[in-house]
């Protein structure tokens, strides 16, 4: 039988997420190297950007629809994926390690008797074998593993794998499957949104503040810079614990893991638990008045000075650059 890969995509509010395009690009790469074909699947009600899928991967897209499936339901999503994947006999299943992917991947692993590696940051081929790298011990070490099960599931850390475009957009092959009686024993009743703010886990640029910002009222310095850059505001645990910032902004081991293109750490010392959440960022800038602060060991560029003096000038310079 022909060997197949399933790229499991995620929609929120009717749009396929950016991290799913990363999943598709990796599926395309593996399919070419391993001579396999790719199917993609997405679950939801109406989805507006299905056409974009074919810019990243030459695949058949299956859209499972039902009005009650717009919001995530672990029981319903699991059942749909498990039944479909068992029928199609996929050997490899890829998905993004987002909050939804993290929740769903282990469930389908049990349903398909598959092995699972979560939070992968690299998938390398050794002949036909996939060797996975993932950070462990709060990013202090890297582990390499391989799966010995017949069906293999890999969940990919968002923002790490590149969403490489195909040279030429592939033909759009979309089929729609209406789901009957989805199993809603476990269902999301509603979503409580953090008012219109960009989430650190999804932002391409993050400006984070730590105890060096000295008080909640001074976070305007961070917010103004973030606004100029179109960035999300992040925070260290010290300032979250102090009640200066909400927990959803916390970056680090007990907060969120982020890999933006640019991470600007202001008044953050760079404790190991903070680094665990952001050291896979592509570029790191540190602004800290202590030149020996550990944050400088992971920073690409740093200014060892007073953030109160530096940030307003930086915000001004960015404004100039953008205009």
């Amino acid at each position: 039988m022909e060997k197949k890969i399933l790229a499991l995509l995620e929609q929120r509010e009717g749009k396929i997420k950016k991290s799913s395009f990363e999943t598709l690009a990796l599926a395309e790469h593996l399919a070419v190297s391993l001579e396999m074909t790719v199917d993609a699947a997405v679950i939801g009600d109406k989805i507006e950007n299905t056409s974009d899928v074919f810019s990243f991967c030459n695949c058949n897209l299956v859209h499972f629809t039902h009005a009650d499936l717009q919001l995530y339901s672990s029981s319903a999503y699991k059942k749909i994926v498990v039944e479909y994947a068992a029928k199609q006999g996929y050997e490899i299943i890829l998905l993004s390690n987002t909050s939804l992917g993290k929740d769903l991947a282990p469930r389908i692993a049990i349903g398909l008797n598959a092995g699972l590696v979560s939070d992968c940051t690299a998938l390398d081929l050794n002949g036909k074998e996939i060797i996975v790298t993932r950070p462990v011990y709060a990013g202090k070490a890297l582990q390499q593993v391989k799966l010995s099960s017949e069906v293999k599931i890999y969940s990919l850390r968002p923002n790490v794998f590149k969403a490489v475009l195909l040279e030429k957009k592939a033909e759009e092959k979309i089929s729609t499957v209406a789901v009957e009686n989805p199993d809603l024993t476990n269902r999301v009743k509603k979503i409580i949104r953090s008012e219109g703010k960009l989430d650190v886990a999804e932002a391409d640029i993050i400006v984070s503040g730590g105890r060096g910002v000295k008080g909640p009222e001074h976070f305007t310095l961070i917010e103004e810079l973030a606004q100029q850059l179109g960035a999300a505001v992040g925070a260290s645990r010290a300032v979250v614990d102090a009640g200066w910032r909400p927990h959803e902004e916390q970056v680090g081991q007990t907060g969120k893991t982020v890999s933006p293109s640019l991470y600007i750490a202001c008044g953050i010392s760079g404790a190991i638990q903070h680094l665990a959440g952001m050291s896979s960022s592509k570029y790191i800038v540190a602004i800290n008045k202590d030149k020996d602060a550990p944050i400088f060991t992971v920073a690409d560029y740093g200014i060892a000075g007073d953030l109160f003096e530096i940030l307003p000038v930086l915000t001004e310079e960015i404004k100039k650059l953008k205009s």
Binding site: L116, L142, A299, G302
Partner: peptide, 22 residues
């Protein structure tokens, strides 16, 4: 189902450039 092949330290990043103090 998951075979552990290797544990290693990440490659230390080259120390970044400190561009100045103000």
């Amino acid at each position: 189902r998951v075979e552990n092949l290797l544990l290693k330290m990440p490659i230390a990043k080259n120390p970044g450039r400190i561009l100045g103090s103000d």
